[in-house]
C-alpha cells in the first residue's frame, strides 16, 4: 500500500478541484453554445489532471504524475482542439430547440447531484481512500454526463457528454485506486483520442448528408 500522509483527507486543494470538476460539468448542462461547452470540458479536464497531480504529490506515486501529464496533453489540449475544429466547421453554433428547457434540465441535474451525494456514502462508506470526497463528485458527473447525452440533439453535444462521462470514470479510478497501471491508462487515452477523432469525422459526415447535425433526424433505419 502507498503510504498516505494524514493531512490529505482534509485537504482543501482536492475538495476545491473536485468542486471545479463538478461545476464545469454542470456548466455544460446549462449551455447551448457549442464552443462554450468545449471550453467547459477543457476546464473539467484541467481540474482532473490537477487532482491526479495532487494525489501524486501527496503519495509520491510517480505513475500518477505521468498519468496526470497525459491527461493534460490528451484531454485538456488535443481533444478540445479536435472538438473546436469540428464545432467551427459546423453551420450551427448552438444547440437547436432542446427537448426540454435549460431550467428544467438544470433542476434535473441538481436532483442527480443530490442523489449521487446521498447514495455514494452508503455504498462505499467513508474514509476508504484519501480521495473519498471525490467519489460522490465522480458519480454525480457520470449521471449529469449521461443526462446531457440523452437530452441534446446536436451530434457534437453528445460527443461532449461522452468525453465528460469518460472524465468522471477516470476520476473514479483515481479516487478508488489511485489510477490503473500506466500502460492501461495510456491505452485508454489513446482509444479515447482516436474515438473522438472518429466521432468528429462522423459529425462532419452527418452535416454533409443532412445539412444539419440534428441526430433526431437520423431515423431512416427502422425495424
Amino acid at each position: 500500500m502507498i503510504h498516505v500522509p494524514d493531512w490529505l483527507p482534509r485537504s482543501n486543494t482536492v475538495n476545491l478541484l473536485a468542486g471545479a470538476f463538478l461545476l464545469s460539468s454542470l456548466y455544460v448542462a446549462s449551455q447551448r453554445r457549442l464552443l462554450a461547452c468545449v471550453t467547459a470540458y477543457q476546464w473539467n479536464s484541467v481540474a482532473l489532471a490537477l487532482i491526479a497531480l495532487t494525489v501524486s504529490l501527496a503519495t509520491g506515486a510517480r505513475h500518477i504524475a505521468f498519468a496526470a501529464l497525459l491527461v493534460l496533453v490528451v484531454k485538456a489540449f488535443a481533444i478540445p482542439l479536435l472538438l473546436r475544429r469540428v464545432a467551427e466547421r459546423s453551420h450551427a453554433a448552438a444547440e437547436g430547440e432542446p427537448f426540454m428547457g435549460i431550467p428544467t434540465g438544470m433542476l434535473i441535474c441538481g436532483a442527480l447531484v443530490v442523489i449521487a451525494f446521498s447514495q455514494t456514502r452508503s455504498l462505499f462508506g467513508s474514509g476508504l481512500s484519501i480521495l473519498s470526497s471525490c467519489l460522490p463528485v465522480s458519480v454525480a458527473v457520470t449521471l449529469v454526463a449521461m443526462f446531457i447525452m440523452v437530452s441534446r440533439r446536436r451530434a457534437l453535444m453528445q460527443v461532449i457528454g461522452l468525453v465528460l462521462l469518460e472524465n468522471a470514470i477516470f476520476l473514479a479510478a483515481v479516487a478508488l485506486t489511485y489510477g490503473m497501471p500506466l500502460v492501461v491508462e495510456m491505452g485508454v487515452l489513446l482509444d479515447l483520442l482516436v474515438g473522438v477523432a472518429l466521432l468528429g469525422l462522423f459529425v462532419g459526415r452527418i452535416e454533409e448528408t443532412l445539412g444539419d447535425s440534428d441526430t433526431t433526424r437520423l431515423d431512416s433505419l427502422k425495424g
Partner: peptide
C-alpha cells in the same frame, strides 16, 4: 452514416 454514428456512440457509451 446513420448506422456508423449509432454504432460508434452506443458502443462507446
Amino acid at each position: 452514416v446513420e448506422a456508423g454514428w449509432k454504432y460508434l456512440i452506443l458502443s462507446s457509451v
